[in-house]
Design a protein around this nucleic acid. Sequence first.
DNA 1: CAGTGAGCGAGCTTCCGCTTGACTT
Length: 777
Amino acid sequence: MAKNLVIVESPAKAKTIEGFLGKDFLVRSSFGHVRDLSKKQLGVDIEKGFLPIYEISPEKKKVVADLKKMTGDAEIVWLATDEDREGEAISWHLAETLDLKDENTKRIVFHEITKTAILEAIAHPRKIDRNLVNAQQARRVLDRLVGFELSPLLWKKVKPALSAGRVQSVAVRLIVEREEEIKEFKVVSAFRVTAEFEVPTPDGPVMMEAELSRKFDTRDQAYAFLEKCKDAKFTVSGVETKPSKKSPAPPFTTSTLQQEASRKLGFSVSKTMLVAQQLYESGKITYMRTDSVSLSKMALAMAKEEVAKIFGDNYVKVRQYTTKSKGAQEAHEAIRPSYMNHPEISGDNSQQRLYDLIWKRTIASQMADALLEKTTITIDISNSKEVFLARGEVIKFDGFLKVYMESTDDEENDENGHILPPIPVGQGLTASEINAVQKYSTLPPRYTEASLVKKMEELGIGRPSTYAPTISTIQKREYVIKADKEGVKRDYIILTLKKAVIKESIKTEKAGYEKAKLFPTDIGTLVNKFLMQFFENIMDYNFTASVEEQFDKIAAGKSIWAEVIRDFYFPFHEQIELTQKKTIKFTGEKLLGVDPKTEKNVFVKIGKYGPMIQIGDTESDEKPRFARLGKEYTIETVSLEQALDLFKLPRSIGEFEEAEVTVGVGRFGPYLKHKNTFYSLPKTDDPAVIILERAIEVIGEKRLINEKKTIKEFAEDPSLKVLNGRYGPYIAVGKINYKIPRSKDPASLSLEDCRKIIGDSGETKSKSTRKVTRKKS
DNA sequence: CAGTGAGCGAGCTTCCGCTTGACTT
């Protein structure tokens, strides 16, 4: 048996480290946290000074049992979890759950996964830092208290199964407020004037574009200016050349990798993380959940060598970056290739593309600045105080630009580029063409998943390991949806002065097209309004930053964690109780108008199952009528006519096989109902206009699929069927399903065989519970 | 999955941050 057991967080890391250490060391992983607050209850005993009630996470039972066995045999247990708040807590939880003895337990940390770094760490062990652990407990307990007291309030006041939390609710707020900004934004237009000048050079005339120093608010002003240009003289009055430089962006963190992969490769944040995980597990890149931009000494040396080899010594510039982002804990390196001398790797297309991005970014970060020369030529206009400016940029030395240029979120980005011809001051120029083009101001852009992550990081909310899950949570709760927005056509005016004549033309452009952007839903907007009204303190963009300050004090031993929590909790809990008593239901109800037929009020509001239309008052004696508001409408935009149309469903569209066919819209979209069977309508069919013939087609298609699905039926027992499902053949009895053993051929089973399989499998109970837990996750 | 909605009431939902492997009937 090995004398030493080293425990790290990640199995991939364990494998690497085991290679560095001798036979006396076994290295295993805890797979992250092994314990958490009890899931079923609040998990915090408030009366006992906020005592946390911990449980071994169900999926970690086996990990803990295995580790326990091994720690019993080891002489020394080395807790080598990450050097940050969570890592320290993981070590402490391990020590507690594994019953580790103080005298043979050592805590070590290392920042790079190299043999020397690890041997160095082993030479300098320490004890678990209880202050840091307490800071983590405070963080954990606070999040639980906020989440588990706010969410049930939402179930009561707004809609069941909603959620709120320190991180997710602020993320939703950002999206809701951006939408409000867009709604309030006033689009204005202005006329941008550009001129094409003819510049005489020894090799003949060259064209040069210049822009007027001001824009005109109206068409008439622009027209008047062009009119003046007809007999103006244009003279170069200044040529200014300034050297400038560009520096490379720092190596990737989780957040910047997600942003660049989104901009350059079009990956969603979850796709980026999935592919990065694959690269990490196959040893091609370093750890992908990090907030640090620093590179290890070894990585710097490797990068330097690689840059010199490929581009030459004059392209080398070794740089160590420092992290500026709020709340960074820097337990890992930046995300970089494991081996800098591998510009390409094997793997699927996504892996290769993401790796390429990481390789280039890392290499570029260790390269020289690009040296530029920026030139501005000023052209006076004889009869106007305005001037034309021509801007040019010349790259004198490309440096890191040889490899990599960071993208920006700005959609318009065409400022730099062209080279200007040499030209003396005093030179007269002729304008071959002057254009005044109407330009509209652009709306504030909606967030993409990646730009939301960027904003969250700026505010210090969320961590590298939670950016992707948070974004999927707020979509799963239907607070926001990711969607494309069609552009709208609009006209713009162009005035062109050419050969002393001004021509006016009108062109159309498509404006405001957006792809894969985050839009708030009615529910997201309503929940945000509720939380902003009653819990503005939690929703404050600085809330996380200020509690982090408190946690830092705990970590430094200057505050007691339970006191910090106490000071937060009691006023917060008071707010919860007050809101509980004070407010009635928060439905976002809006009066749409009056139904002309019944003369009753028509409302739109959020109900138990989402947005809906209601005809008739809730207080009246007569029961109101309800209709679900489909995803194609919003509370904001739905009209009275559209709302009333929804009550035309369900409707009968005729008879088929001597039974009525009805069409309606339900929980899962439009459906047909025939002989008590439901048939989902494809998206291409509109329930408002569908006719019987088409309905029969849909029913026929569904029957055909069902036929293929059924392998065997038995006349003696119609409730029992052998079916072909997603995971292969199975036996269905009512709503309970049974696995068919591999050894049996499903097509040749008799009723007796089936009953025997059902009898043998026995444990239907465990099956159903498993199904429930799966649903939760 | 299953096609509701008020009201009655039981029993369910929920947080953030660490980490991957489930094996689906």
